[in-house]
Write a protein that binds this DNA or RNA. Sequence first.
DNA 1: CTCTATGCAAAAACTTTGCAGGGAT
DNA 2: ATCCCTGCAAAGTTTTTGCATAGAG
Lengths: 136, 136
Amino acid sequence: MEQKYIEYSNLLKQNDLKSTPQRVAMLGILERKGHADVDYIYNEIKKDFVSISLATVYKNINTMLEAGIIQEIKVPQKKSKFEIAKAKHSHFVCESCGEVYDIEEPRNLQIRLPEGFHPKEASVMVMGVCKECARS
Amino acid sequence: MEQKYIEYSNLLKQNDLKSTPQRVAMLGILERKGHADVDYIYNEIKKDFVSISLATVYKNINTMLEAGIIQEIKVPQKKSKFEIAKAKHSHFVCESCGEVYDIEEPRNLQIRLPEGFHPKEASVMVMGVCKECARS
DNA sequence: CTCTATGCAAAAACTTTGCAGGGAT
DNA sequence: ATCCCTGCAAAGTTTTTGCATAGAG
């Protein structure tokens, strides 16, 4: 617990952001959930910070996005989810429950681009049915 | 012109949607622009349908999305863009100007999934700098 | 001590809904 | 003639902004 707090606190400071209990809590929620949308974060954090404002959650999401501490995952037909930035990976999105899962990055991804285009990064998203939903 | 109108009109009918001048115009705008957001479509269509409502644009986007005639492209940090549904392809998004370009689908994309997960479709998005912006 | 973050309220931006009239099949 | 579509207005949702106070460095 305490270690995690210090870890996130340092993560924020290393990125020139002030470490506040609210921000640390948001990172903790993201770590535990993996991928969460604004509402989930807000509802979770209210358990510890009863009077926190939704505006603060939005502001911190934007601040941490700009700093590159977290990343946004835009999902077709669903609300955006956020995750703590980590080693490059791909995403699997369950069409049934909407859950997002991290998956291995495909190897030797070969992309053909027209001349003059300069790629910086590629992301792969797989849609399908997750393990949980496949049971039903 | 006339042929295009009939083409879109038939496309709508084939998908059990009524063919209206507004819908056909929206498809024409999407064809010409390639990828457009709600505002772009609305501003363009107003040139021909002065009194068209933004609500109609939204309703038609949703209707045509459900019918599978058009598709939504969710771009990180940018507004969604729409395109006419066509053969499977990938997208290149310019980080500088926000423009979306169609690119070839990567060949032999090999994705490793945990057991129990059932993929249905994979999409690849490449971020970078487009030809136009590379000039500046 | 200084400067940024927070909480609250209000505003802005975005999207959907309900309804009456008009148009497509 | 029937049923869907359109335009308008209103409501709903989501996100941002301004400001006074609190808190971090």
